[in-house]
C-alpha cells in the first residue's frame, strides 16, 4: 500500500461515512474506536480481523460480496458469497479480487492462475495490472468467462464504473487472443 498516512485516514473516514449512509455495514463488526493512524511500518488496514488488543484498532467495515467462479464443466458461472472486511474501497477491491481467485471445489476460479500485479482505484475506475503466465492461458470460452466473471464481480460495487485491465502495464487488444478487451471495461 503506497497510500500516505493522510490518504488512508481520509479514505477510511470517507468510507465510513459512505457505508454508514448506505447502511451496508454490519454494526457488530464495526469497531467502536475512532479512526486510527497507521503505524509507520505498514498498513494496519490490511489485517483481516480487528484485533482486540488494547492498542488502537483500525476501523474496519465488513461487507458480503459475491465473486463468480465457473462450474466444473466450464458451462456457467457460479456465485460464491464471501464476507470481506476492509478499511477502504481500494482495499475492498483488492480483497474481492483475492477472493475471486480462490477455487471452491468443484467450482473453478478462472482467475486462479493469473498474477495480480496491482489493483488501484481512481475516480471510479479500477485499474488492475496483471500478468498471465503462459501455462494459464485459456481457450476462447474460458477467456470470455474470465472477463465476464471479473465484470460481474466488480460491477456489483457502486463505486466502480469501469475496469482498466492492463497486462504488465500495457493496454492489450486481447488478453488471450479470442475476446477483444475494452479499455476500460464499462458497466453495462
Amino acid at each position: 500500500m503506497k497510500a500516505g498516512k493522510l490518504r488512508v485516514i481520509l479514505g477510511v473516514a470517507a468510507c465510513t461515512l459512505l457505508l454508514a449512509g448506505c447502511g451496508v455495514n454490519e454494526p457488530g463488526n464495526v469497531a467502536g474506536g475512532s479512526v486510527v493512524s497507521p503505524s509507520p511500518s505498514g498498513a494496519p488496514s490490511e489485517s483481516p480481523l480487528p484485533t482486540a488488543s488494547p492498542a488502537p484498532t483500525p476501523e474496519l467495515l465488513s461487507q458480503e460480496v459475491s465473486v463468480y467462479l465457473t462450474d466444473e464443466q466450464l458451462l456457467e458461472m457460479i456465485e460464491r458469497k464471501v464476507t470481506i472486511e476492509f478499511g477502504s474501497e481500494e482495499e475492498l477491491l483488492n480483497k474481492t479480487i483475492e477472493a475471486l481467485q480462490e477455487n471452491e471445489e468443484p467450482n473453478q476460479s478462472l482467475w486462479n492462475g493469473i498474477e495480480i500485479l496491482s489493483a488501484t482505484l481512481n475516480e471510479g475506475i479500477a485499474t488492475i495490472d496483471i500478468k498471465i503466465p503462459d501455462e494459464s492461458r485459456l481457450g476462447a470460452p474460458g477467456e470470455m468467462m474470465l472477463i465476464d466473471s471479473l465484470k460481474k464481480t466488480l460491477f456489483q460495487f457502486e463505486f466502480i464504473d469501469g475496469i482498466q485491465l492492463l497486462v504488465q502495464g500495457e493496454q492489450v487488444e486481447s488478453l488471450m487472443g479470442h475476446v477483444d478487451l475494452e479499455h476500460p471495461l464499462k458497466k453495462d
Binding site: 466444473e72 464443466q73 477455487n103 473453478q108 492462475g113 492461458r137 485459456l138 481457450g139 474460458g142 479470442h178
Partner: peptide, 9 residues
C-alpha cells in the same frame, strides 16, 4: 483453436 480448462477431465 484448441481449448483449455483447469478441470482436466
Amino acid at each position: 483453436h484448441a481449448n483449455s480448462y483447469d478441470n482436466t477431465s
